[in-house]
């Protein structure tokens, strides 16, 4: 594993109308790592994701991806640098089949424009065949290739999550953000997803993910970043985090409140 830094977040802050959702957060993700962001509800995890992927603008701080500053870039520009994501509330394209969802994921890898497609130029058909092949491979990677020609909206929840991952992979990114990938999955589906992610890591993929399910986090994360009330309260290996008194306090505090 190389020590190349892929994502670098420095002193990142975001406030909504005076309330700090993310405050002065810094951390790094190295190539080939699986980094988890955890924290009690409302700790700012999803906000952090939305900042990194450019969905919402940061109030202050720096984000660099592959050495390039991505502050102020639109989400599609960030994606074309090689960073894709999945969503906590599923954002599958319900108006398409499963395979089309994944083929759409390859968008930035293809060239066809309005004119060349409209005139049915020969290279378009070639590109289409290739992208379909590629999409089938991505579906195989997550294990739902047999559902390729179903309508996406008919898939059960767990398979829609896998579909989103396949779609994110189809862009051939170097870095994928997963927003609560295990939410709503049964234990069997969770184990399956963990295996999928582990296999992808073996092939060199880097992940940053938000997760509530501690078992998953402890089993696959190389590094954990803990947020509480928008601030980073700890960072370290799963062993370090599970014995960190601040983290225990933050979680126990939350349980008491419930």
């Amino acid at each position: 594993m190389t020590e190349e830094t892929l994502l670098k977040v420095e002193n990142l802050s975001k406030s909504f109308g005076g309330v700090n959702a993310v405050e002065n957060v810094s951390f790094e993700v190295k190539k080939g790592e699986i980094v988890a962001v955890i924290g009690p509800n409302g700790a700012g995890k999803t906000t952090l994701f939305n900042l990194v992927t450019g969905v919402i603008p940061a109030t202050s701080g720096k984000i660099t991806f592959k050495g390039v500053s991505i502050i102020g870039k639109r989400p599609y520009q960030i994606a074309s640098l090689g960073m894709t994501r999945t969503f906590q509330n599923l954002q599958v394209f319900n108006n398409m089949t499963v395979i089309e969802n994944v083929m759409t994921g390859s968008h930035i890898r293809l060239k066809t424009g309005i004119l060349s497609s409209g005139l049915r130029l020969p290279n378009v058909y070639k590109e289409e065949k290739e992208v379909m092949q590629k999409a089938l491979q991505c579906l195989e990677q997550v294990g739902i290739a047999d559902l390729a020609f179903e309508r996406a909206e008919t898939l059960p929840y767990g398979n829609q999550r896998l579909l989103e991952i396949a779609r994110a992979v189809a862009a051939e990114p170097s870095f994928i953000l997963l927003d609560e990938p295990m939410a709503g999955l049964n234990p069997q589906e969770s184990r399956n997803l963990v295996n999928v992610l582990k296999n992808m890591r073996k092939q060199g993929m880097t992940f940053l993910f938000v997760e509530h399910d501690m078992e998953t986090v402890m089993s696959i994360a190389d590094k954990i970043v803990v947020l509480d009330y928008g601030k980073k309260i700890a960072e370290g290996t799963p062993e370090e985090i599970s014995s960190n008194p601040k983290v225990i306090a933050a979680y126990l505090g939350e349980e008491e409140a419930i």
Partner: peptide
């Protein structure tokens, strides 16, 4: 289908 997802894959 979803503007936010379509931007997230680079469209």
């Amino acid at each position: 289908g979803s503007e936010i997802a379509s931007e997230a894959i680079g469209i």
